[in-house]
């Protein structure tokens, strides 16, 4: 197979996978929030509430968060 053909196959397959992954990701994002499993919008607070002594949205060392994952 020539490099030309290879790159075309690579491109078609790669784009196909990307489109599928991307759209299922959109569906996943909105569904999981609708079901109440996740709350993504709380992360928007990171920029608003950014004093060094304010409570993080999720703490790095907090074991409770690990269980949530």
């Amino acid at each position: 197979m020539s490099m030309d053909q290879l790159s075309i196959y690579l491109y078609v397959i790669g784009s196909g996978i990307t489109v599928v992954v991307f759209y299922s990701y959109i569906v996943y994002l909105y569904r999981s929030e609708k079901r109440g499993e996740k709350d993504y919008e709380k992360y928007g607070r990171i920029a608003i509430d950014d004093e060094i002594d304010s409570t993080p949205v999720e703490t790095v060392s907090d074991p409770a968060n690990k269980n949530k994952e």
Binding site: M3, D4, L6, S7, L10, Y11, G14
Partner: peptide, 12 residues
């Protein structure tokens, strides 16, 4: 990804 597909194959 884009670079690998578009640029490399045509180098020669």
């Amino acid at each position: 990804f884009a670079g690998a597909v578009t640029i490399l194959p045509h180098f020669n």
